[in-house]
Write a protein that binds this DNA or RNA. Structure first.
Lengths: 195, 195
DNA sequence: CGATTCTTTGAAAACAGTCAATCTGTGTGG
DNA sequence: CCACACAGATTGACTGTTTTCAAAGAATCG
């Protein structure tokens, strides 16, 4: 079950078998059913999860009741409200599962200890932080500079696997578009590609 | 000149006078004239700067030649292309000064040493990283969920000092709007406020 | 004062959202 | 196996928002 996690730690973090054993002592495997919440607003996100199998999303609900998807997570991605996880402040987000999923969870106190005791784990997290920064910048740049069509096209290039698995109206929500608009954008695109 | 930096380190990072002396050994004060570039695309951002006085911006230029402002920096803010600084990859951004400015610069290698040797400095940077994460999330959420008017109103609440100092067309660029639209939004707003 | 930068305005066009209806595919219960 | 319900996707007509283009009006600086 947690082989995927061990592989990840080996490949992305160069952890030794001994270090992986140490990490595995503090993780908790969990199954999450489709539609099940992992986090709700007001709770503090005391853990990070690593997705072994499945698909989840983090979203907020605006005053008028609309859902706005901040982030997806599939196999080999981390899932958490990192904002709440890092700051210790209550979350503003929901996290739920879009498919029956399996994750391994790690509590913040153990996470902090591992960072202090396993340099390879620390540098893995540093890489993750840098990557997150890049992803955020890219998304902000896309949001302020690109048309709906370009944003969608970049999305399917950057996240083809998400695009395949997730309903279109959620992709629209992630991109900040109405589902109707995204549906029309996609139609335009397919017309162009068959020319 | 660098008193502002020492104050910042004391107040935000609880550094002791001795620790501050240690930091001050590796910083380089620099004056940047208005319109002067601090960074251009392709360069690696090998330093972070702390703004003692003045105002700067980080922006990218899109294929059609438009400027898109990623970030402003004024007194007591850090300035850098953090993406490039953290990853060591070439930057995609320009940084330039909007006013004659004074900054103190720190090279990455010294930054790394200070993080390792001064726990207070490390936790200051950790706070900064968390704060950055929050700011990114807030901006993304704003971009995908709010109207032009709401985005602008949130901007002037969140960054009143920037709004006062920076030309309207740059605020528009930061928000992902045309200057004409922002001009009209602002007019609408002022009408509402005088009712 | 003249030059430059910044802001505003109007009119038209492009773009995106809303509402309502229909269509499609999937899965469940009878 | 069929009928039905349900979630998701599409379409059309309409409305509202934002951009674009062009011009003119402030403000600032040397």
């Amino acid at each position: 079950m947690t082989d995927a996690f061990a592989n990840y730690l080996t490949q992305k973090g160069s952890l030794t078998p001994e270090e992986i054993r140490q990490v595995e002592q503090v993780i908790i495997p969990r199954k999450i059913r489709r539609y099940q919440y992992l986090l709700q607003p007001g709770e503090v996100s005391n853990y990070i999860g690593f997705v072994v199998k499945g698909c989840l999303r983090q979203f907020r609900i605006s005053e008028n009741g609309q859902e706005h998807i901040m982030r997806f997570a599939i196999e080999n991605w981390w899932v958490s409200d990192f904002e709440s996880f890092l700051s210790g402040q209550p979350s503003k987000s929901y996290i739920d599962a879009l498919e029956d999923s399996e994750i391994v969870m790690m509590e913040k106190q153990n996470y902090d200890i591992l960072i202090q005791t396993i340099p390879n784990f620390k540098s893995l997290i540093d890489k993750l932080t840098t990557k997150n920064f890049e992803v955020h910048q890219a998304r902000i740049y896309s949001n302020i500079s690109e048309s709906a069509e370009d944003r969608y096209n970049n999305f399917i290039i950057s996240y083809p696997s998400i695009n395949q698995r997730v309903p279109l109206h959620m992709v629209a929500s992630f991109l900040g578009l109405s589902r109707e608009t995204l549906s029309r954008v996609r139609k335009q695109d397919s017309r162009k590609n068959t020319d």
